[in-house]
Design a protein around this nucleic acid. Structure first.
Lengths: 219, 219
DNA sequence: CAAGAATGCGAGCGGTCACTCGCGTTTGTC
DNA sequence: GACAAACGCGAGTGACCGCTCGCATTCTTG
């Protein structure tokens, strides 16, 4: 899935040459899948419904994905990749040194915006049903974000024990996801209100651990 | 599907006389359902699996429940009823007047204990898939808890605008559920640690709104 | 252009699931 | 004991779902 054209050393001779049309179809199908997953969740989403939403036949769908699970995995990977691009901008050392209030703005605003624009990401992160291998991918998604938070806390407060740091990172992420559900579930000024509430909550939780002041630049 | 021979006026014409054996079966089936729902989620749980777990045949299951949805609804109602008994003890005026730290202990400890003992409750609260009517029941469950929180905030800080109070109650409940997921997902000292983290988070969030001090008794 | 590969289709296959039905067993009531 | 109602069974039914297959169409390449 990941390596499309690289002749990898060992296995999987993949002589599949995609045409531009094919890449376009894949994108259509993933967009449709995101829409259907959001509406019904992973398990209840039927591949026929995804194909219909994409305006293609079931057979065409299986031209590009070996099975239903692969659709969710590929969608998750793509969203995660785009999320990590946001991460790269967001979890920087400069941001980590900011006063807490500004740090939260700098981290949360892009994250919230991304998730409002791509609600499927939250859906995949939350989906607790789903069979076997999908759960592993799910966990990987989770950890990849978790690590960033963990790292940021470590930079900001190096004296914290690793256990407390992990607990704090886990809880902070969980609180963030909980807030996201409310945020995505509302619109307009209501949404803005919940964004503010989420920041308040995280500020109150993290202030004692990370301090409210910024960190001066190191020599 | 729904009511086959219902005289619809208001009451359900229910000439069904249950024997003690039947009530016992119903409890067995609900226990089995709780177990299966927890393991696989609502959608992926099959009625055959529930019947097997309860040690009865599929036909017997349908002697007591008209369809799969009704099982989840009845289970939700029973758990909610038991939860409300806990609520009654927990959301009292005396508790509302306590210093915030103790208020959180008084409210959260029983709630956490209940949810650890009945993980199906969280599963039903979280289940985002599930078809039509189940979602209404789900929302009702949700609101019934939400109202209690709303009320407690109102008693504690009557000057808060209704909108802010609702936002605060929603967010507090969301944070609680997020913490519960972590708590139920761990055991032993890890679990204790996350309980402490959840209390810290809620304290940090609620302190500016509710105040940290207790409220003296009114004349 | 010709040939082969990639794309596209949709009826249909095997399987699972929610739910039913006919019939046998237990229980309560007179 | 007699009768009806509640309980219990499990093979079976229809619907849906993931996925396949044979065949038609479109693109790339030489």
């Amino acid at each position: 899935m990941s390596e499309s054209k690289a002749d990898q050393s060992d296995e999987t001779a993949k002589p599949r040459r995609r045409q531009a049309r094919g890449e376009r179809r894949i994108q259509q199908l993933l967009d449709a899948a995101a829409s259907v997953f959001c509406r019904t969740g992973y398990t209840s989403a039927s591949t026929n419904a995804i194909a219909r939403e994409a305006g293609v036949s079931p057979g065409t769908l299986y031209q590009f994905f070996p099975n239903k699970e692969a659709i969710a995995v590929e969608l998750g990977e793509r969203l995660n990749r785009r999320m990590l691009e946001t991460h790269g901008v967001v979890f920087t050392l400069e941001n980590a040194a900011l006063p807490l209030r500004e740090l939260l703005d700098a981290v949360l605003d892009p994250m919230v915006e991304f998730n409002c624009a791509n609600p499927a990401f939250l859906t995949l992160l939350q989906s607790s049903d789903a069979p076997g291998h999908f759960l592993e991918e799910h966990a990987a998604l989770h950890d990849s974000i978790q690590d960033r938070i963990n790292e940021l806390i470590g930079v900001r407060n190096p004296d914290l024990s690793p256990e407390r740091r992990t607990h704090t990172a886990n809880m902070a992420f969980a609180l963030f996801k909980a807030g996201l559900v409310l945020i995505i579930g509302h619109e307009g000024t209501e949404r803005e209100a919940y964004i503010a509430e989420l920041k308040t909550a995280l500020y109150g939780y993290l202030a004692p651990v990370l301090g409210t002041e910024g960190i001066p630049a190191q020599p």
